[in-house]
């Protein structure tokens, strides 16, 4: 097992990942899909208004990507600090 300091760094890095990922989570849904929907709607993405697209499609795609990025980051982090499961 690692010493106290190392394990603290593991948790800190984890919290930093969470902060970054959850910020993106917030921005694509509450930001682009709700708060900024009207300005974004003046931009066109194919047959969609952009704000509307984020609210009904784009945010969901981003959510999926976020989870898989998190899975990758954490698997690496677990290995680095040797807290992974065999």
């Amino acid at each position: 097992m690692n010493d106290q300091k190392n394990i603290k760094n593991y948790w800190k890095t984890n919290l930093r990942y969470l902060l970054v990922l959850l910020s993106i989570w917030f921005v694509v849904s509450y930001g682009f899909g709700i708060l900024l929907v009207e300005p974004l709607n003046t931009i066109k993405l194919g047959g969609f208004k952009l704000g509307f697209w984020f609210a009904q499609q784009g945010s969901i795609f981003t959510f999926v990507i976020l989870i898989f990025v998190y899975v990758r980051l954490m698997n690496k982090l677990d290995k680095k600090y040797e807290v992974d499961e065999e």
């Binding site: 969470l18 990922l21 959850l22 989570w25 849904s29 899909g33 709700i34 929907v37 509307f52 609210a55 009904q56 945010s59 969901i60 959510f63 976020l66 989870i67 998190y70 899975v71 954490m74």
Partner: peptide, 29 residues
Amino acid sequence: LISFMGYDGSVYLMGWTGGYVLLALLLAP
């Protein structure tokens, strides 16, 4: 519901998927 609500129906789309990000990052592991 979305068919009758249009844009307002987005609350269900984002609401019922975005929770999985919270679940994966904050609870499940």
